[in-house]
Each structure stands twice: as structure tokens, then as C-alpha cells.
């Protein structure tokens, strides 16, 4: 329905219903839930946390301005540096594997075979239950010394691995769990694969290209905007990873899984250093923003848009 255009001359004559139905007002009404939610749940807390990052706030005191002390403290905090390192390792290892896995399965599941919708649903299930506490608990049990994974390794004559007792191994189960939740990227890849015109493949077939050549010369370039989207979204999500470490390892052993998000949480709510935690949150946000900007900058070299 076409809205009523506001005209100052006639505004006074509008009934409440007509006024509500004007383009401007109805637009604001529809946007209001988001505006309220964003303002109070995002914008206000963000600005407050920025202010707190320059204070000694501990949640119960009156914040005192301490300048850049919290940011300077980070520079000398070895555990902070370690948590940044652990976070980057997790991002660099989990995101590419997750994307490759998602793309591989999307490729298989977009083939015209029977039962493909069923399999697609099944593969999406891990993402539906997501990074919940229950799933983290189950994964924790799977990788215990006498858990299913080591039992299976033993059945193949392999030595079990002390996953959570050894700092060199502890990050891997968390990476595996992250990769296992490939469903969302898989679905987006599948949608992208379906959008690639069949004529491209037909032309390649006529030219005698083999399957690998078709995949790398047609599928990947055509899918590159989707890969970019998934890469950005998964990178942001990986930087914010918290639940797995919080539930399964608590950041240990010897801080080997102490993600930055977990370290921030501990400082804020367990060690009562909300000011310092706020400062670290802004550093995390900056890290995410810079990484995203870097990906977007490099994307000019490897993304292909059909209309360009």
C-alpha cells in the first residue's frame, strides 16, 4: 500500500491512523524494534565500555579515570600476549579448514542425486545445535584420555593422545569442534553453487576441461564473492570463540587454550577488572576490524564478479 506523503499544509488535518501510515512514520515504526535493541543492547554498552577502558572500574566502585594505564598494562601482560597468540592460531587453523570442509560438502550435496536434501539437512544439524554448552561438554568427553576418540585410535593400533593434558594438543579438539560446525557456510556455498550458470560448465565440457580444471577455473572464481562473505563471517566468529574453551579446558593447560574472549571474561567477572577487560575488548574489536579490512583489501585481487 502506498503511504501518504507528509505535507506540512495538511499535517494538522491527518487523523492518528493516517499519520501513522505516512512513509516516514511507518518506516520509523517498523525500524523501532531494531533501533531500540541496537541502542540499548549495543550502542550504549559499547560507548560505556570505551569509557570504562580508561578507568579502574570493577563493577562496584565509582570509575576513576586512569588514562591509558589499561592499554599500557596490556603491553606488559604476558598472559594477554599469549591469549592473542592462541586466538590467532585458532583463527588461522580453524577458518580455512572449516571453509574447505563446507565447500567440499556443499559441492557434493548440490549434485543431482537422490536423497540430497536429506543429507544436506543431516550435515546442517551440528550447526543448528551450534556451540552450545551441551555440545562442548560432549566434545570434552569425546577427547578425554579414555574417551571415544582414543578408543577408536586404539582400535586401529594407534596410541591414544592426551588431548587436554598436553599444551601442544589441547587446541586441536577445539579446532575440530569448530570445523564440525561447518553447516552455515555449507548452506551459503550450496546456494552460491546453484547460481553458477550451467552454460559455463557446458562450455568447459566442450573445450575438454577435466573436473579439477572446471572446479578451479569456473567454480571457485564464480564462487569467490561467497567465499569472501564466508571468510569474513567465519573469521569474525573465530576471533570471538569462547564457549568451547570456557566449558572444556578453562583456558588450560598452561594457558594453551586461553582465548582472548575467555581472558576478557575472566578479568571482567572473575577477577573484577572491568576497566582492563573493557580495554582488551576494544583491542579485540580492533583486531577483528583490521583482519576484516585486510581480507576485503586482498579480495580485490581474488574475487570475481560477473558484472565487472
Amino acid at each position: 500500500m502506498k503511504g501518504v506523503t507528509i505535507d506540512k499544509a495538511v499535517r494538522k488535518k491527518l487523523t492518528f491512523g493516517q499519520w501513522l501510515n505516512t512513509d516516514t512514520v511507518s518506516g520509523y515504526v517498523f525500524a523501532l524494534p531494531f533501533i531500540i535493541g541496537f541502542s540499548f543492547m549495543m550502542a550504549v554498552p559499547m560507548f560505556l565500555s570505551f569509557y570504562y577502558s580508561f578507568t579502574d572500574f570493577n563493577m562496584l566502585n565509582t570509575p576513576t579515570f586512569i588514562g591509558l594505564d589499561n592499554y599500557v598494562r596490556m603491553w606488559n601482560d604476558m598472559r594477554f600476549r599469549n591469549s592473542v597468540s592462541v586466538t590467532f592460531r585458532f583463527v588461522f587453523l580453524s577458518v580455512p579448514v572449516r571453509l574447505v570442509f563446507g565447500l567440499m560438502l556443499a559441492y557434493v550435496l548440490t549434485r543431482k542425486t537422490s536423497g540430497v536434501h536429506f543429507y544436506r539437512s543431516i550435515y546442517y544439524l551440528p550447526t543448528l545445535i551450534g556451540g552450545s554448552i551441551a555440545v562442548a561438554l560432549v566434545w570434552g568427553q569425546l577427547f578425554q584420555n579414555q574417551g571415544v576418540i582414543n578408543v577408536v585410535l586404539g582400535a586401529f593400533g594407534l596410541d591414544g593422545v592426551n588431548w587436554f593434558g598436553n599444551p601442544n594438543n589441547a587446541l586441536w579438539p577445539l579446532i575440530f569442534m569448530s570445523v564440525w560446525q561447518f553447516g552455515s557456510s555449507m548452506i551459503i556455498f550450496a546456494a552460491g553453487l546453484k547460481d553458477i550458470p550451467e552454460t559455463y560448465y557446458e562450455a568447459a565440457e566442450i573445450d575438454g576441461a577435466n573436473k579439477w580444471r572446471v572446479f578451479f577455473s569456473i567454480t571457485v572464481p564464480c564462487l569467490s564473492p561467497i567465499i569472501l562473505y564466508n571468510l569474513v563471517m567465519q573469521t569474525i566468529a573465530a576471533f570471538m570463540t569462547f564457549t568451547q574453551a570456557f566449558i572444556i579446558t578453562g583456558g588450560g593447560p598452561a594457558d594453551s587454550t586461553n582465548f582472548l574472549a575467555l581472558y576478557i571474561y575472566n578479568h571482567a567477572f572473575n577477577w573484577f577488572n572491568m576497566g582492563y577487560a573493557s580495554a582488551m575488548s576494544w583491542v579485540l574489536l580492533t583486531m577483528v576490524a583490521v583482519s576484516t579490512a585486510f581480507i576485503m583489501w586482498t579480495s580485490k585481487k581474488w574475487t570475481f564478479y560477473a558484472n565487472e
Binding site: Q144, N145, N162, F164, G165, P253
Partner: peptide
Amino acid sequence: PTIQQDEG
């Protein structure tokens, strides 16, 4: 138990 042996 060592840290490695303690499964929490």
C-alpha cells in the same frame, strides 16, 4: 596425579 593424568 600429574596435570596430564588429572582429567578433572
